[in-house]
């Protein structure tokens, strides 16, 4: 793990107990995140990709402190968020911000744009009205919003504009890490293109790290430096974006990529479609969690658990069948 990583997850586990009546203690758990080790460097964009229920949003919530990890550690700028003193944790946590999927429901309908964007700055320091206003105007300018809209409320804006307000709010406390939870999934493609351009410019200009949660591989491809593919609470493959997406090694990554419909009708995919559905995280399959759906499974897959192992520089795969010898980059 590099020393300058702003976020480091070590064997992170989040289990949710299932309710079994008022007095009985729960004996069953949903294994939402089960042993995730990952880090994000300064100015780096890491994409967590996977289908719904794979645990990518739970990882994001744990990083934000919205969900308590069952075990494992989360380090933000070298501060262990489970052990460090309160003041230190507060300081480290304030530099982590989030942009959610649905822009309309993540902005308070009763607040003006000014109040929404000013709130993080207000809670951190006690700036006076004028300097606060100039800071808000500067932020709106950064995200490409008309500064005349300062006193409007969220319902007067389109989805793309609301997402810009949410990004301005996230920038207001000068974060070093921003969690983007499906930032463009609710937007049209032409608006998505603009938001992605804005985010990528922000990374270049301010050196902010992003943890990008997305199910859209095309978005991950054009934004991220590295990707981690998740399946049922575990990372099955990770590495540099280009390497993973152009030459996926894990059968699930292969299937995920083949499932994306190409916008070119002359390229009709004849590839085998993955059968079945994602199993329940309450009773995850034994051995490799992907084996019931895996087209290449062998005997070992169903009974022997598999861990991530490095196959080449910066690339790791959790598959019994992945090449033993390091592959060329």
């Amino acid at each position: 793990m590099s020393r300058d990583s702003v976020l480091a997850l070590q064997d992170l586990c989040v289990y949710f107990p299932l309710k079994r009546g008022a007095f009985r203690r729960s004996r069953q758990f949903a294994y939402a995140v089960d042993g995730v080790t990952e880090s994000v460097g300064r100015g780096e964009i890491l994409a967590l990709v996977g289908e719904s229920g794979c645990g990518k949003t739970t990882v994001a919530r744990a990083v934000l402190g919205l969900t308590k990890p069952t075990s494992g550690s989360i380090m933000l700028q070298g501060v262990d968020m489970a052990q460090a003193p309160h003041k230190v944790r507060q300081e480290a946590g304030a530099g982590v911000q989030v942009v959610f999927q649905d822009p309309a429901s993540s902005l308070s309908p009763r607040m003006t744009v000014h109040d929404i964007v000013a709130e993080p700055a207000r809670t951190r320091g006690r700036p006076d009205g004028e300097s606060l206003k100039s800071k808000v105007l500067e932020l709106l300018d950064t995200v490409g919003l008309d500064t005349q809209h300062l006193w409007r409320r969220p319902h007067e804006f389109s989805g793309g504009q609301c997402q810009r307000i949410a990004i301005a709010r996230a920038l207001a406390s000068d974060p070093y890490l921003v969690v983007l939870d499906e930032p463009t999934s609710a937007l049209d493609v032409s608006v998505q293109a603009r938001i992605l351009t804005l985010l990528s410019a922000l990374r270049d200009a301010r050196g902010i790290s992003f943890l990008l949660i997305t199910h859209d591989l095309a978005v991950a491809q054009c934004m991220a430096d590295r990707v981690a593919v998740m399946y049922l609470g575990r990372i099955v493959e990770k590495g540099p974006t280009h390497a993973v997406l152009s030459n996926p090694l894990h059968p699930y990554s292969v299937a995920l990529l083949a499932s994306v419909p190409s916008p070119d009708p002359t390229q009709r995919s004849g590839a085998a479609v993955l059968g079945g559905e994602v199993p329940s995280p309450v009773n995850p399959p034994t051995g490799c969690r992907f084996h019931p759906r895996c087209p290449q499974r062998t005997d070992i897959c169903s009974h022997t658990d598999v861990r991530l192992r490095e196959v080449s520089d910066g690339r790791s795969v959790a598959c019994h069948l992945a090449p033993e010898t390091p592959v060329g980059a």
């Binding site: 293109a193 351009t197 990528s200 491809q221």
Partner: peptide
């Protein structure tokens, strides 16, 4: 507008 390239700079 479709993200096809490897960087956001290519997006129209």
């Amino acid at each position: 507008c479709l993200p096809t390239g490897s960087t956001a700079a290519h997006l129209k």
